[in-house]
Amino acid sequence: MRFDLILRVTAKLLLPFILLFALYVQFHGDFGPGGGFQAGVIAAAMIILYAIIFGLSAAKRVVPQGLVETLVPMGVLIFAGVGIATLFLGGNYLDYSALNHDDPAHGQHLGILLVEIGVFVTVSSTMTVIFYAFVGRGR
């Protein structure tokens, strides 16, 4: 790995803002454009940028392969779990109104938030896992 000073410094400056933007897209998705999918891709792009500039092993120290591999199914489980939770609370599957009986609209809001987190987790970890698999192969 060559030591590219300008690239490294610029990347270090950019990385926190990319992550912040991902979180903004995630949690502001209710009000502006964006949501779990886009935020997940942006977060994965941050990890990938880190891996490109600082090397794959450095990236795997920050975001271990085992962790992302666990997170891939975890997001789907969060999504499906919200559905199961609404079943137990007396609603239909994925009927978020059941999450809050006093104020169904608030329940909807909560359900959308949780579900978007599930999408975020699966998308970002899947993108990272695919990138790790591609780059880890070597020639």
Binding site: G29, D30, F31, G32, P33, G35, V72, P73, G75, V76, F79, A80, G83, Y93, L94, Y96, A105, H106, Q108, H109, G111, I112, V115, E116, G118, V119, T122, V123, S125, T126, V129, I130
Partner: peptide
């Protein structure tokens, strides 16, 4: 839903089933 962005409310709530399927597709691809 108290969510001003209709795209989000349609994706996650009205069409929640579709989005669950979509997430599963991404999972399967990974």
């Amino acid at each position: 839903t108290t969510v001003p962005n209709v795209v989000t409310s349609v994706l996650a709530s009205y069409r929640g089933f579709d989005t669950l399927g979509e997430t599963t597709v991404i999972f399967t691809a990974g």
